[in-house]
Design a protein around this nucleic acid. Structure first.
Lengths: 251, 251
DNA sequence: GGAGCAAAAATTGTCAACAATTTGTGTTGA
DNA sequence: TCAACACAAATTGTTGACAATTTTTGCTCC
């Protein structure tokens, strides 16, 4: 994966100008946070891909600010493991390795399972779940419209919003971090031919929750995350078997 | 809680000069990370207390560096919710509110429970637990010696080290963050007369783990965290009842 | 065509200087 | 004695300039 630069960085400023609350709650208080959020959004939407070099001067141009602002935003992103800063060489969108991938998915299975348990004990669950149902509908629509960025963003947001329903800010922040990093992983290891629609799986989870069937909900979430992880092409062996499949098919 | 400054900040540089791996794995790569770690260590050890103002110029003096370094370290600590940066007013050691306290403990119960489950399925558990046993011994010794900072640090480190045994870097980092924030909470809400020895509880957890009794281990950890949370004085009503107890006793 | 080298260009790391804001102090008047 | 105000001092926010490092380019030689 060689560092690329100009074309990918140009994807930072999407056409939408209305503030999207995916990354931060409410408007950012300062310039650094704004830049942070813009870059993070671009990473989550997979407009900025793993390994891309984030040159300070280019970002200053894009965001019309001084280098200090850019450096501060990059430092925060590095702290989140979204960006890797290599001393004297620059900042790059992070490229999580196989171990990190496994660790993140494992952590998600633990945390998201615990969130479901908490939700199960909460009153008024059905009305809480209504906003999530419409979100899944939006996922479905985005997919049908071929709007990949929107689909990815909404798909990610489903998990964050589920955490928000649990009314624990620490868990919500945690889920934000885990889903952001998952987006990187998927961008890095996803196999186009293996992509399946995740909104159906989201629907199943919601259904189980609405029926207050904890075991089913846990199984559905576990299955969803396991599936997501299984779909990634993580090893040379998998790449080899894919190449074989390609040439077998061609012949 | 009024911001105080000079006397508490003087606690940043402890007598020990050997690098303690509590905060970061290995030596920090740069000056910012070093300052970050020093301040975080001081917070965890409760040498720096909640609400203390962290003046840039003072920190520059203490650490013999430029303001840029200090600002970068404070920004990272703010990102971890360890420090609160108020625009145009300065940086303060954070003062978590009651909701945040609850959220953190809840998150810990979820995550630490999940860690125990994972540990239960790991091979060679007994030899893994050996280092933790000696750590609990150190806790006990520190408490007996009246070395509060060491006791707190070791007590915190127990949970981080338990997470490390699970061999998942994401979970370990997560536990680091949660325990650091817990240390703040305890500094803020702890009642001196209510403090109990937590190393006995740590021992119970280890014992259950060694016997591979998952249910008992989960119950012990849950009880430990619940106990810890219950010991905090979080409401005015509790303060009132404490005042009544004080004057009832005096009469 | 590739390797090695020097120089130029690009980029990152750092910090002092200045601007902006807040806090503290002193004075005045009621 | 307290409130209001002005001013000085302290502190935070920001950025351009310079130093240090890395990357790119051009040239020579084999």
């Amino acid at each position: 994966m060689t560092p690329t630069e100009a074309p990918a960085v140009s994807g930072i400023r999407p056409e939408k100008s209305v503030w999207d609350s995916q990354v931060l709650d409410g408007e950012p208080l300062n310039e650094v946070d704004r830049i942070y959020a813009e870059i993070l959004d671009a990473v989550i939407d997979q407009r900025l891909l793993p390994g891309v070099k984030l040159t300070e001067a280019v970002l200053c141009d894009v965001f019309h600010c001084s280098r200090g602002m850019v450096r501060a935003a990059l430092a925060k992103l590095a702290h989140d493991e979204i960006v890797e800063i290599q001393p004297n060489r620059g900042a790059f969108v992070a490229t999580p390795d196989v171990k990190e991938t496994h660790d993140i998915f494992e952590a998600r299975r633990m945390v998201e399972g615990a969130i479901l348990k908490k939700l199960m004990g909460m009153p008024d669950l059905e009305s809480r779940l209504a906003s999530l149902s419409s979100l899944v509908d939006e996922e479905r629509a985005a997919f049908a419209n071929g709007d990949r960025s929107a689909w990815i963003r909404l798909s990610n947001h489903f998990h964050v919003k589920l955490a928000q329903l649990a009314e624990n800010a620490v868990l919500t922040d945690l889920m934000r971090g885990l889903t952001s990093r998952t987006s990187l992983i998927i961008a890095l290891y996803d196999v186009p031919g293996r992509s399946a629609c995740s909104f159906d799986e989201h629907d199943v989870i919601l259904d189980c929750l609405a029926r207050r069937d904890l075991d089913a909900a846990l199984a559905a979430m576990h299955h969803h995350l396991q599936d997501c992880e299984q779909r990634l092409r993580l090893s040379d062996e998998e790449i080899q078997s894919d190449l074989r499949a390609v040439f077998t098919f061609k012949r």
